[in-house]
């Protein structure tokens, strides 16, 4: 009976795995094929890997784009985690009527499509370009700033804080910790897996972000990876083998971040951490 159940679970997960990674495998296979074969829908790996990689590095500046994306994603992830967890903690633990109203307004900003606020936001950055050039249009700082504080992560941390035991806070207060100390020494370590999940998502969102970097970054040397890939695909006769190579390279960092972060998702962590 129990064995049956196990077999069923493994079969189910294996099917899900195959469905999930099939396009990923095709992507990897395509990076070894030439463009003509990719458009013909060839599934098997070919022999053009080296050629595609060489072409890619010769035709576009992929390394600077990786560096830009890397800087933006890492800075965004750290700032997001820090700011959003502070806010999520503050909204839930130090709950008050006033803060609840503010929280609802914060939530509201999550609901408008980004395309609708893009023009006013661009105008905002255009307005400060002269006075504060390092935050203005065409700077990495401008690409980062609006994306670090999002209602999404504040909401995420607040919902997780609801599962955080208040006893730990009281214990901290009795131990004479300051409010800040409680956050830093009790909350942060206890919520490690929440931070891990938020880090994965924040990194991925930032790494893949398209619309905002597209409009705010102008010079080619500041281009991020998604913008670079978008360029590759827009020619009248796109080289799909090369595009797939670029895509695989662009996908790896997020996959790796996930793989290393998910190790923190170990069941029953809670019991082992004491404040």
């Amino acid at each position: 009976m129990k064995k049956c159940k196990r077999i069923f679970i493994y079969t189910f997960l294996s099917i899900a795995t195959i469905v999930s990674i099939f396009p990923f495998l095709w992507m990897i296979s395509s990076m070894t094929n030439q463009s003509v074969d990719v458009t013909r829908g060839r599934l098997l790996p070919g022999t053009h890997l080296f050629e595609n990689v060489k072409k890619l590095f010769e035709t576009v500046d992929i390394v600077p784009a990786l560096v830009n994306s890397g800087i933006i994603a890492v800075v965004t992830t750290f700032l997001t985690l820090f700011i959003a967890s502070l806010a999520g903690y503050g909204f839930e633990i130090h709950r008050s009527k006033g803060k609840d109203i503010v929280f609802n307004i914060v939530l509201l900003t999550m609901m408008i499509p980004f395309a609708a606020i893009m023009v006013p936001l661009y105008r905002l950055f255009g307005g400060i370009t002269d006075t504060m050039p390092f935050f203005g249009i065409d700077t990495l700082a401008a690409a980062i700033l609006p994306t670090v504080t999002t209602a999404f992560f504040i909401f995420f941390f607040r919902q997780n804080t609801k599962m955080f035991s208040r006893d730990l806070i009281e214990a901290g207060r009795i131990d004479g910790l300051s409010e800040w100390g409680i956050f830093l020494r009790i909350y942060v370590p206890t919520m490690k897996t929440t931070y891990a999940a938020a880090a994965i998502i924040a990194f991925m969102n930032s790494w893949n972000n398209y619309l905002w970097p597209l409009v705010i970054l102008q010079s080619p040397e500041k281009r991020t990876i998604p913008l670079l890939i978008s360029n590759l695909g827009s020619s009248y006769s796109p080289d799909y083998g090369m595009i797939m190579t670029a895509i695989v390279i662009a996908t790896l960092p997020t996959a790796l971040v996930f793989f290393f972060m998910q190790k923190h998702f170990v069941a029953g962590m809670m019991g082992s951490v004491k404040g």
Binding site: I83, A84, L86, A87, Y89, G90, F91, I93, H94, R95, S96, K99, V102, I105, V106, L108, T109, I112, A116, I117, M118, P120, L121, L124, L145, P146, V148, T149, T150, A151, I154, E179, F183
Partner: peptide, 21 residues
Amino acid sequence: IGWLFIIVSVLAIGLFYFYPM
């Protein structure tokens, strides 16, 4: 003190999302 925890977010959201909204 709760306000101190949320003040950065509230200002940033206000500037980058609420005002454009």
